[in-house]
Design a protein around this nucleic acid. Structure first.
Length: 191
DNA sequence: GATTGACGCCGAG
DNA sequence: CTCGGCGTCAATC
C-alpha cells in the first residue's frame, strides 16, 4: 500500500451525517483526501493506512469543509495548487503522493473536468495519448484526491456509470448532487 | 513473463 | 439487452 513516513496533519469536517477528512503535509499541501464515512474512526483508519504518522488538528477544517460542499454538489471550484502532485520515484520527495507520471497525467486530465460535466474513460485515455483504457481506469481508481479531482465525473463510453472506490452508489449520489439524471445504471446526458 | 484491472468494441444469442 | 471474447497497456506478482 505504499506507506509514507512523513508526519501529516488530518483535519476533519462533519455535515449532517457524513464525516470528511483530508491529510496535509508539513508544507500545507493536501496529500490525501478520504471518501466520506458515517463513522469517524473508519475515516481516520483509511488515511492512516497510507500515513501511519499523523496528528489530528483543526487548522485545515475550513478547507475540508469546502471539499464537503463539492461533494454535495456546490459549484465551488477548488485551487488545484493545494494538492501535492509530486511523484515519488521522480525525486524521492518525502511528501510525494503520486507514483508515476502516467498517474499524474491522468489525474490532471480528470481535474480539468468542470462541475456538471462528465467525460468517458476513453476520452481521458485519448487526452493522455494512450489506448490503455483499462490502465486509465486503474489510475483513476487510485486517485488520492477524490471529490476535488472529480473521478466521479468519468463514466463509461456506453453511458454506464462505471466503478468507484467508495462504491458505485456513492458515485451515483455525487452525480445526482451535480444535477445529473441516472436511470438503471446509465447517465442521461441532458440532465 | 503472466496476471489483473473503476474499459472499449464487436458479434452472437 | 446481455454475454463472451479479444484488444490494449500500466502496475503488480
Amino acid at each position: 500500500m505504499n506507506k509514507r513516513k512523513d508526519l501529516v496533519i488530518i483535519s476533519i469536517h462533519k455535515t449532517n451525517k457524513l464525516y470528511f477528512a483530508a491529510a496535509f503535509s508539513q508544507k500545507g499541501k493536501i496529500v490525501r483526501i478520504a471518501l466520506p464515512q458515517t463513522n469517524l474512526e473508519d475515516l481516520v483508519t483509511e488515511i492512516s493506512n497510507y500515513h501511519p504518522k499523523f496528528i489530528i488538528n483543526n487548522m485545515y477544517d475550513e478547507i475540508v469543509g469546502i471539499i464537503a460542499e463539492i461533494y454535495h454538489g456546490n459549484t465551488s471550484n477548488f485551487d488545484i495548487e493545494l494538492l501535492e502532485l509530486n511523484i515519488s520515484n521522480e525525486s524521492s520527495h518525502e511528501t510525494a503522493t503520486l507514483n508515476t507520471t502516467f498517474e499524474r497525467d491522468v489525474i490532471l486530465e480528470v481535474a480539468s473536468i468542470p462541475h456538471g460535466q462528465v467525460k468517458t474513460y476513453k476520452e481521458i485515455a485519448t487526452a493522455v495519448k494512450t489506448q490503455g483504457y483499462r490502465a486509465v481506469g486503474t489510475a483513476i481508481g487510485k486517485n488520492p484526491f477524490p471529490i476535488v479531482v472529480p473521478c466521479h465525473r468519468v463514466v463509461r463510453s456506453d453511458g454506464k456509470i462505471g466503478g468507484f472506490r467508495g462504491g458505485k452508489q456513492m458515485k451515483i449520489e455525487m452525480l445526482i448532487n451535480e444535477g445529473f439524471k441516472i436511470k438503471s445504471d446509465k447517465i442521461l446526458l441532458e440532465k
